[in-house]
Design a protein around this nucleic acid. Sequence first.
DNA 1: CGCTAACCGAGACGGTACGTCTTGTCTTGGC
DNA 2: GCCAAGACAAGACGTACCGTCTCGGTTAGCG
Lengths: 210, 210, 210, 210
Amino acid sequence: MNAMASRAIPSNKRPPGRPRSERARSRILRSAAALLVTHGPRRMSIEAVAERAGVSKATIYRWWESKGELALDALVGELVAKMKEVPDTGSVEGDLRGYIRTVVRTYGNPMVGKTQAAIIGEMQSDAALRRAYKARVTEPLRTESRKIFARAIARGEVSRDIDIDLVLDLLIGAVFIRLLFDLGPLNQRVADSLVDVVLNGIHSAPGHRS
Amino acid sequence: MNAMASRAIPSNKRPPGRPRSERARSRILRSAAALLVTHGPRRMSIEAVAERAGVSKATIYRWWESKGELALDALVGELVAKMKEVPDTGSVEGDLRGYIRTVVRTYGNPMVGKTQAAIIGEMQSDAALRRAYKARVTEPLRTESRKIFARAIARGEVSRDIDIDLVLDLLIGAVFIRLLFDLGPLNQRVADSLVDVVLNGIHSAPGHRS
Amino acid sequence: MNAMASRAIPSNKRPPGRPRSERARSRILRSAAALLVTHGPRRMSIEAVAERAGVSKATIYRWWESKGELALDALVGELVAKMKEVPDTGSVEGDLRGYIRTVVRTYGNPMVGKTQAAIIGEMQSDAALRRAYKARVTEPLRTESRKIFARAIARGEVSRDIDIDLVLDLLIGAVFIRLLFDLGPLNQRVADSLVDVVLNGIHSAPGHRS
Amino acid sequence: MNAMASRAIPSNKRPPGRPRSERARSRILRSAAALLVTHGPRRMSIEAVAERAGVSKATIYRWWESKGELALDALVGELVAKMKEVPDTGSVEGDLRGYIRTVVRTYGNPMVGKTQAAIIGEMQSDAALRRAYKARVTEPLRTESRKIFARAIARGEVSRDIDIDLVLDLLIGAVFIRLLFDLGPLNQRVADSLVDVVLNGIHSAPGHRS
DNA sequence: CGCTAACCGAGACGGTACGTCTTGTCTTGGC
DNA sequence: GCCAAGACAAGACGTACCGTCTCGGTTAGCG
């Protein structure tokens, strides 16, 4: 799908032919990123990226299958890196607060939020992009954040019966629905409230435990 | 936003000129709906809708501002009606289970889910559509579902301090994140688990460390 | 094939829809003609014609099937008109001299010759263009020039057994081969010599008539 | 113009460096010829020739300056050889009939005629190709065919004042105009008629008015 | 035997133009 | 005043080739 994938082949031999131009690659990504934040992915045209990067359209089409995957490559790198380091504070509550605060802070940045929302929008009509997003964003983040619950279960803080992914769907879903539907602010208070509900529930008294 | 709204305001008098063709209107909506489910909203073109409906493009542009709003008109009507009737079982748990089960059942239908996801994707790059969606789908549903919590608070089942919208963001967000990111099944078991976590939290009961 | 053809239908009724823009048509032809003489038909691009004419490419493609046919429409009109009026001097020799001199003078003009040669070159790889050229240039001219021989036969100047088209192939062919192969000048002396050979042959003495 | 020519000049010594691959050369010419007859020179791409020949594009560009010259090399060799041997029958009429019959038979072969017409078309927008064609086809053939008239003048069959090239333009031009404009058949009867007109003219014999 | 030179394949590169597609607007005559 | 038909300007799409280039590797004669 992208350059990195083709690098993954564990071969020492250089392939024949003129090697790919690293300069072209980075100029394309930089141009794409710039156009994404100014125009959104829908109105970012390959045509414009090519012109801005001083690159031919064919070079872009050689390496990226769709506009969406180019957008992904252009924007997603450091985003994932930032959120991937989940804290280890010694308690679920601390870990989750730290993690969700980071998520909320990242997507709460209007520029990041807008473009991410646009890419998520784009992938609703582009199966390849959806797969790419899952592989490069969702899964890496989930893998890390699941560890919070693994530790919590080991510590006996939460029941070993919980469906970890479902709990993460609740927390992350709440963040994304606010982002995608423009439903409310994304700030630290909201992050903490989300974590609180998920940890303690909304039932008013212990006596109501079912 | 659409024709009916603009007509609804002024007066009882028929406006001058040829009245709007109801036949054209319904043929357009029917064609749009058909093309939406077969091609998705991205590849549904005004051109194709016009041809299928035997209608000129100008007629479509006269009554709908964008492709997205046409899609909304074509698909969203009965959807909202279905989910709007929230049950009143006498307990939060019963009410929420009933409501979330309905939501999950509706969006779990692949055809509905796909097209709704596509419209939500579309509205990420169409502010007018986002507003229209909010006004015609999100808000009406929220207005109804908030009543569940109002009753629960009145009954003392849940704390009066809870942020109702935030709790709904958790529940509905979990459903949508699964839909939009293709993350997991949408079935009754999932619906019940979501409700359980939100009501009771995931903390082990005090003193229940295993 | 072109606009005029579609006009030929002897119907009084205007077809439905927006009528074709005469302004666009003439701007396209003018731009095409200008680019033809400056760049030749091979390097005249539809892209450039559209830009120069302030017209969208689609409008050109709507009305002309190929670059060659556009070139034909752009250049051929007055060319044919000029050569179509064959003189009637009272003798084959006079008529032919007059006609061939006109042909030679027309194609001897470097700009006309170059572009005509280029169109003829183009039509070697474009069957539709070849047909169009035949219908709009070759046949109309042949129809007129055959009359010279009809009159000559009536006057008894030439045998009634001659193959008129073959004689015209000789005369016109000699002009075109010089043009297309860059073989020699095209001037009045050459025109007269061609006519002389065709009328009298090259055999040196009457006694050699076979 | 081509590789052989540049080798022919200097000396007996082999130049330094790896010698040119004869295998590559012949594979290129064979591939070019095949693509020429199937697609015509216009749609024969260097890209396709290279792939078919299993050769890199650079190798082609190293040895041929343009598509046209490659086409010339690929097709023209034996063509010239065939027509170059003009007969010597003892009379102009015999010689010319023999020669023009050969020319007509050669170009009358549809495959040869089509591809030659295409190359001639191509050279209308390629000055280098036009020069190459003249040097490798037209001039060699003219040199031979002029001898027919030299002998005829020596025998007193034709006037010593005739312009030999102009007479050849008439005969060869008639053949080519039929080929290029798709104007009529090319067969022995036509060949003989052409020769007859050029030798005897079309004037009725003096006193033979019918 | 190693050096140097010119060849070779593969294939990426910046470009140009292609012909198609869709968008939203405009311009007719008819209802 | 609505409607169908359909032409229009605009401009992005993805493709095909162009001719150039940059590699690693090959094949010779010469020192």
